[in-house]
Design a protein around this nucleic acid. Structure first.
Length: 280
DNA sequence: GTTACGACCTGCGAGC
DNA sequence: TGCTCGCAGGTCGTAA
């Protein structure tokens, strides 16, 4: 489950490998990987030069020299790999992009096909930055220098829903998935089913601080990897899974109070929490 | 306008 | 050994 730290690891790796390179060919091996693309992907990309690599939340995009961008979302199992042309194809290779310098090619590999690539026009956001039109509804993420803490707290407390549901709402705050939602709530001693309206400003601010901390910690360790699905552009795994306090810890003692961590179903997924530290 | 929920998809492990 | 079923979960479309 690539969340913000994992996507940022990928962005940094891509930036080293694709900036200023010109696309020579595009090969789509699975149509579902380009289901959100309007028109042929190759026609939109061939001959275009990549300027840099940008990110908002879990979305990555490569601004191109014609004012458009190649947008990527990794979904649950997507990988963007830089591979030598001679390297054997991955089992779940979906899209291959070659560059005119003949160097390493960019491969989009995705087992569960929840991720995908598309091109989009770049439009201005609320601060004058340029973002793909398809993702203007995605909120800034907590590591974005322009993230507005006070506005987030206001909108969070104004919502009529549960706190974990709000954390996973990418239109409110982006980049948080199931893993870091559970970790942030554990650090904040909040149960995910707590009503957003009942959260004080101070508690909401504390929660936001923990969201930032857990993401920063994960980023420093190369992200969270449970298996070979979650890797950087060189196919290497991160180590943050060894630092998790709640997610995946069902049956283990809470690192704070020793109470057994429990799991419950919530929003068609699993939530992990300490029943003593995080009371509903 | 806001919220909730089902569908999408594939590989793996458990159970029979 | 082989089959079935549940589980993992991010995003979007639709219903309420």
């Amino acid at each position: 489950m690539p969340e913000l730290p994992e996507v940022e690891v990928v962005r940094r790796g891509l930036a080293e490998h694709v900036s200023t390179r010109t696309i020579r060919s595009v090969e789509v091996l699975h149509v579902r990987a380009v289901r959100r693309q309007d028109g042929p992907l190759d026609a939109a990309l061939i001959g275009r030069t990549v300027r840099c690599v940008s990110r908002r939340g879990k979305y990555l995009w490569l601004p191109l020299d014609d004012g458009t961008a190649l947008v990527a979302h990794l979904g649950m199992s997507g990988q963007l790999l830089m591979q030598p042309a001679a390297a054997p194809d991955e089992k779940h290779l979906r899209v291959r992009i070659r560059f005119d310098d003949g160097g390493r090619e960019l491969r989009f590999v995705d087992q569960r096909t929840f991720g995908g690539l598309m091109t989009a026009e770049l439009v201005s956001d609320d601060r004058g930055g340029r973002v793909p039109a398809e993702i203007v509804h995605i909120a800034r993420d907590p590591l974005d220098p322009d993230f507005d803490d006070e506005a987030f707290i206001d909108r969070l407390r104004a919502k009529d829903t549960e706190i974990k549901r709000a954390l996973l709402d990418q239109a409110l705050v982006s980049g948080i998935g199931n893993i870091y939602a559970d970790e942030s709530l554990w650090r904040s001693r909040l149960h995910g089913r707590r009503a957003t309206g009942g959260i004080s400003r101070a508690k909401a601010s504390e929660l936001l601080g923990h969201v930032r901390d857990v993401m920063t910690d994960a980023l420093a360790q190369g992200g969270t990897s449970f298996d070979a699905l979650y890797v950087n552009v060189n196919g290497e795994s991160g180590y943050f899974d060894r630092s998790l306090d709640a997610y995946g810890q069902e049956g283990e003692p809470c690192h704070r109070c020793g109470t057994t961590i429990r799991r419950e179903h919530f929003m068609n997924r699993s939530s992990f929490f300490c029943p003593r530290c995080q009371r509903p």
